[in-house]
Simulated assay, not measured.
Amino acid sequence: MRIPGVISFLVASLCLAGCTSTASVDALDLQKPSNETTSSVIRPPAPIAAVPAAMAKNASKAEMAPMADIAPVDKDRPFGLAEEETVAFPAPELPDNAEPTVEPAALVSPPRLLSRAAPPMLAGPVTRYGFRDAKPINFGRGASPRHLAVHGVDVSRWQGNVNWDKLRAQGANFAYIKATDGGDHLDPMFTRNWRNADAAGLKRGAYHFFYWCRTAGEQADWFIRNVPKVEGALPPVIDVEWNGESSCKRRPSREKVLEKMQVFMDKLERHYGQRPIIYTAPDFYRDNLRGEFLDYPFWVRAVARHPAKVYPDRKWLFWQYSGSGLSHGVTGRIDLNVFHGDERQWRAWAGGRISVADAD
């Protein structure tokens, strides 16, 4: 009498296990990366924005500087553009183990205009350099970034509550603000920084830290969903670098890196009507970008030697020359950057009237 009952129990258990297994497989399928390739993006018949021709000139075949000439990453500063997993100066209210929060509304609603539309030109005159540096570098006679007129900063949650008026008064004319990384992380200070930088009269732009374990299309969609399309904003930035501290240990081939970058940049260019700027560091540039993307503006990190020595075959638009800047507007250190041109060229480029080449 008990045998049929046992058999029924076993059959029911197997069915339940089968359902559970199927549910697990479905969950895994949802997380599979798509087979997205560059060809999946339909390119516009003509460039959306004027291509900085200074970046489009054929690069020379000069050899890269030996690795001994490239400064190691400063362990006392955030990695690259303040990548979240390696920062040393968290905001007091954000402990080291805190994870970036994601605004639920960003997942289901279109981008919100976080502030008034900025005019095409600068809100005020260029403020001269007034920063201090905890680790100043002698870049050589005539090569100091101080000889260039227009300085700025890049910030993320790790700078905490920024006093933008003080930062502006000390010499920040522009700010690149961390917006997103990967396909699901939104910097919790982005909205506040985006509004307040504009209110203080800085030209502002947003950057995305590229995550090599997510598809490019997902990441582009996430950035577009969270970064407003605002008149007068600086072009968006894709931050590409190797980060040994990241949870993603994948290092795609050069071919795959270029493909993913192109997909991401095509989507942003179509949406914002501006050609994205590529930020990179020496090792990533050496492995992937030398001789590539000649019609894109570059923002290069070179904190020990002049970019001409670290990137001898590359025209550049912005130079990140220090990760140890000091300002009355922030607690701790801040990345310092400079525009490659004089005040007239800056106003013309930032206002969208001429390309970088025309300014040279």
Rank of each mutant, 00 (worst) to 15 (best):
T215D: 13
G332D: 03
S34W: 01
M67C: 05
T101V: 14
L14V: 15
K229L: 15
R270I: 14
M1C: 08
V25K: 13
K203G: 04
P52G: 11
T20D: 10
P276F: 00
L234D: 06
L148T: 15
V126W: 04
V6Y: 10
F79T: 13
D239G: 07
P145C: 11
L336N: 06
A175E: 03
D154F: 11
V338Y: 01
P312H: 05
V108G: 07
H340L: 02
F318N: 00
R192Y: 07
Q219D: 11
P47Y: 02
G152M: 09
S8Q: 08
T280P: 01
R251P: 02
D313F: 00
V330H: 05
V237H: 14
K249E: 05
S322H: 06
H185D: 09
A105R: 13
V263I: 15
K267G: 01
D181G: 08
F284P: 02
S327T: 03
G140T: 14
V257C: 06
E245V: 14
A348T: 07
R195P: 06
E269R: 07
R344H: 07
A98L: 10
C248N: 12
L336A: 04
P78E: 15
A82I: 13
H306N: 08
L16S: 10
A281W: 06
E103F: 14
T280V: 00
A62M: 14
Q262I: 06
A350Y: 08
W194K: 05
